[in-house]
Simulated scan of single mutants.
Amino acid sequence: MDAEPEDPPDDGRPLRRGWTTGACATAAAKAAYRALLTGVFPDPVEIVLPKGERPSFALALEERGDGFARAGIVKDAGDDPDVTHGALIVARVRLLPPGSGVVFKAGEGVGMVTMPGLPIPPGEPAINPAPRAMMRAAIAEVAAEEGASGDVEIEISIRDGAALALRTWNPRLGIVGGLSVLGTTGVVVPYSCSAWIHSIHRGVDVARAVGYAHIGAAVGATSEGALKRLYGLPDTALIDMGDFAGGLLKYLRAHPVPKLSIAGGFAKMSKLAAGSMDLHSGRSQVDLSGLAELAAERGATAELVAQIAAAPTGLQALRLGGAIGLGDAVAAKARAAAIEALRGAEVAIEVIAVDRNGAIVGRAN
Rank of each mutant, 00 (worst) to 15 (best):
A207Q: 05
A207C: 09
A207N: 13
R208L: 10
R208A: 15
A209N: 15
V210A: 08
Y212R: 06
A213D: 14
A213S: 15
H214N: 06
A218M: 04
S223Q: 06
E224T: 09
G225R: 05
K228R: 14
R229E: 10
R229A: 15
G232I: 05
G232D: 06
L233Y: 04
L233F: 01
L233V: 03
P234A: 09
P234F: 03
D235F: 01
T236F: 04
T236H: 14
A237E: 04
L238G: 04
L238C: 03
I239T: 05
G242V: 11
A245F: 01
L248H: 04
L252I: 11
H255Q: 14
H255M: 13
V257M: 11
P258R: 14
P258W: 14
S261D: 05
I262N: 00
A263F: 02
G265K: 06
F266E: 07
A267M: 12
A267N: 08
L272M: 08
A274P: 03
G275F: 13
S276E: 10
M277A: 15
H280Y: 00
G282Q: 09
R283H: 12
R283I: 09
S284N: 08
S284K: 00
V286Q: 02
D287T: 01
L288T: 05
S289T: 09
E293K: 15
R298D: 01
A300G: 03
T301N: 06
T301Q: 11
A306E: 13
Q307E: 14
Q307I: 07
Q307L: 14
Q307Y: 02
Q307A: 15
A309Q: 09
T313N: 08
T313D: 00
L315N: 12
L315K: 14
